[in-house]
Design a protein around this nucleic acid. Sequence first.
RNA 1: CCAGACGGCCGGGCGGUCGCUUUCGCACUCGUGCGGGAGAGGAAAGUCCGGGCUCCACAGCGAUACGGCGGCGGGCAACACCCGCCGGGGGCGACCCUAGGGAUAGCGCCACAGAGAGUAGACCGCCUUCGCCUCGGCGAAGGUAAGGGUGAAAGGGUGGGGUAAGAGCCCACCGCGGACCUGGCGACAGGGACGGCAUGGCAAGCCCCGCCGGGAGCAAGACCGAAUAGGGACCACGCGCCUGCUUGCAGGUAGGGCCAUCGCUGGCCCGAGGGGUCCGGGUAGGUCGCGAGAACCGCGUCGCAAGGCGCGGUCCAGAGGAAUGAUCGUCGCGUCCGGGUAUACCCGGGCGGCACAGAACCCGGCUUAUAGGCCGUCUGGCCCA
Length: 157
Amino acid sequence: MTPPKHSAKIERLKKRRQFLAVAQGLSCARGAVLIQDLPRPSTQEPAELSQVSDPIIGLGFTATKRLGNAVVRNRAKRRLREAARLLTPLHAEPGHDYVFVARNGAPNRPWARLLDDVKTALLTLAAGRGDPPRPARPNQSRDGRSGRSKPAPSSSR
RNA sequence: CCAGACGGCCGGGCGGUCGCUUUCGCACUCGUGCGGGAGAGGAAAGUCCGGGCUCCACAGCGAUACGGCGGCGGGCAACACCCGCCGGGGGCGACCCUAGGGAUAGCGCCACAGAGAGUAGACCGCCUUCGCCUCGGCGAAGGUAAGGGUGAAAGGGUGGGGUAAGAGCCCACCGCGGACCUGGCGACAGGGACGGCAUGGCAAGCCCCGCCGGGAGCAAGACCGAAUAGGGACCACGCGCCUGCUUGCAGGUAGGGCCAUCGCUGGCCCGAGGGGUCCGGGUAGGUCGCGAGAACCGCGUCGCAAGGCGCGGUCCAGAGGAAUGAUCGUCGCGUCCGGGUAUACCCGGGCGGCACAGAACCCGGCUUAUAGGCCGUCUGGCCCA
């Protein structure tokens, strides 16, 4: 195992407000997972914030009802939680909040592929190349994103 | 052995590695570490009934409205549940199904077809009389409702007598109603003097009868309670001028602001406050509610059973974006392919094959979903003895 990049404390996001806030940040979809990323709102004074970045990573996990019944949703979130436990010490940015959204295939995608999905998504976000948030009440004009420099999503097979 | 009926049970096993929640013990740098224990279901589901619990409302009784229930007896805290029995229907049978009170309390409805569908009716027919006439029919009047035809249903059925032809017109049996008798706690069953065909179906159309029923729900409810804003009390400081008094308040005024701008006039508003300490309401948030119970497991006993009683033993999830798992190996099962000879069976390999489904305050039920498998009792066949 590679040594962790940092030893940031990990917190769980628990309130609906927190999830809605992170949804305003960058996002990146890879395979069976969509990850949203937002720098943490500073709870300290600006002077204190400037010295060292806030050493906390916030994590949240979501699965919509579209994915399946409660058993399927729980299984998807558990697998994402396990993947996040293994990979966030290596690839996540301290001082950021992440929300892992389960997509189709999250409950039964081969474990190695799911780990790869999470890893590449985290790296893409760390490089600041995620997608901007969708408009709040969208008509979903899908040509609005066509020109963006987004790598083709790895086709799930 | 085959086909089937009913009842009960299980619903992946084992082992690595890494984790989560909680509890106990021990450490210490006091929130972490180490060790031990416990940690989803038969439906946790749907949220359809019945309760516990909490808050709100409420003198008692009756009536009305609304909703629910509806054979009888028993069980239960209670029920729309369960058990046993009765009536009706289905099956060769084991068994299964059954919204099963009232149609002489009243209203309403009975499509289509048909002459007629509920104070019955007469299309084809049948019979009598009369008339005409080509002697076989036609027409008119009347009597009928057996037969045909329509329909889910045609105002009892079958047989006989009777008659011009017929008809409960009369008779027998069946059916129907039924005083009463017998058995049963009862639903009901058996018999039945007598009546003499009057009494069709639908109550899942309205309704009538009997019984039951306050409302909302753990987001119930209780407690703690930050920042900010607002409320109250007290303290000291300050507050142009006038008046009043209950001596810290009220009214007026100088002054200021607004009504697009300027002048005049008019209207409205401000016209003493800020600071400190304390108090109470309340938001975010947090804690409790929260699991020893109509509990579970044995044994005994009563009961056909549901279940009751007695004795002994056990402690059995408590999360909160929501733990109870993730992953790897192996075994088991299923399926596909190839081979051994075709069935049975065996060997090798593949599988992104392994049910329905996740506690959310807690119990008792109901309903619905469910791959595969096990056990028991019974029924109908076939073979052997």
